[in-house]
Design a protein around this nucleic acid. Structure first.
Lengths: 227, 227
DNA sequence: ACGTTGATTTCGTAA
DNA sequence: TTACGAAGTCAACGT
């Protein structure tokens, strides 16, 4: 990895056009050739960047300008990132090696596992029939049965938006055509449900349910399973 | 901005749990207190991070360990980022000042403005009724009228995918319920339309139209407006 | 290789 | 402040 602290001006042309006026910034060049230009604020997203694979060509500017170097970074497409350096305060090369990588826990998959073990938290009368119940257009997260003998399809998201309602609607449309199932209701379960998704769900007769991951973790699994 | 090249181990607990084993990495601390941990690969996204506002408390570990420092970064919520440093190869402070910021050009808003001024480029018989025409589930980008007296809802994207067709379909469903409008057609306008979106659009009776930003810029605005 | 989906998304804008 | 949609999103997973 190469780190430069430098006063520079940046132009990007590709999926859009963007320009950064001359200012002091951090330029990061990773060993795969990717380049990112950071300022001292905002979130982790750089002001400008070029993702790998890409190649850098370095050019010396005309003598009479104040510029010291011009980088032209190009990728396989037609994207071009041009960095004009005025002053390079530091230019450091460091060898970080290959990172052992990140281990995550608590994403949608975990939520699905917990709800599969505790479907009654969604609605008291539910027992699990199957996780990832297959349909022609993809698997439904959970298929449950009610004590009254009906079925409930559950779509699980970390954050539910309108798309989630559309997805569950398509599943329900298919499941309701299956004469073996009969009546099928829909539940949209998520840690956070956007108001518009909630509205559309109600409009479609789908029940939106907010779930709490930490609460779920403290539960003992439902015992009255079908299988 | 403070930059450290250091061998460190990281734990994050918050919206999820994540762990990074001990390895040499770049740790970036911005002047707003935000912290990000980068490796020498992948895109610009860091392995772990804590966004501002947050605070860092530094602790010295017990003497017999190999650790030199432990940082605990916390924000207003319950998120905690713990960085255990084994070896700090370098620790640099640089003053970048406030960045003058990025200027973008060529995004959806520009497209919408240009098409609102030149609806006839979409189809010869169109005049603008309203930009951001409101419906119960959100505003339609453009509502136009035809010379024949019908209406056309226009959804504008930089790149149109299947979602864009779904979105316009929902708008059309609502608009067609409105007895004041009567017949409402749909146009999907984008700089680039993915084949799948084009296919679905045709299937739904929606007209996909490719627009050229540079061509639009050279046009004089339509004169035959309704308002 | 390509498409789909989730994300500690981030970022802008409007209500 | 909140909520919503777009992004040069990025990254993981399946086909």
């Amino acid at each position: 990895m190469r780190l430069l602290i430098a006063t520079c001006e940046v132009h990007y042309t590709g999926r859009l056009s963007a320009h950064l006026p001359m200012a002091k910034r951090l330029v990061m060049v990773k060993s795969d050739g990717s380049v990112s230009i950071h300022c001292d604020g905002g979130a982790y997203k750089p002001l400008n960047w070029m993702g790998a694979p890409c190649s850098i060509s370095v050019e010396q500017p005309a003598v009479q300008t104040t510029l010291t170097q011009i980088w032209t970074v190009t990728n396989k497409g037609s994207d071009v990132l041009k960095i004009s350096f005025a002053d390079i305060e530091s230019d450091t090369q460091v060898d970080l090696g290959v990172d052992p990588g990140l281990a995550k826990d608590g994403v949608e998959k975990d939520l699905q596992e917990l709800l599969a073990a505790n479907p009654s938290t969604l609605r008291g009368d539910l027992t699990l029939v199957q996780r990832e119940y297959p349909t022609a257009i993809g698997p439904v997260d959970l298929l449950c049965r009610t004590t009254a003998g009906g079925y409930v399809a559950v779509e699980i998201k970390r954050r539910a938006e309108i798309d989630s309602v559309e997805q569950l609607t398509r599943y329900l449309e298919l499941l309701r055509r299956d004469p073996l199932l009969g009546n099928v209701e829909g539940i949209l379960a998520a840690q956070m449900i956007r108001p518009q998704a909630r509205t559309l769900a109600h409009d479609r007769g789908i029940e939106p349910v907010c779930v709490d991951l930490n609460e779920l973790r403290g539960l003992t699994p439902d015992e009255n399973r079908l299988f």
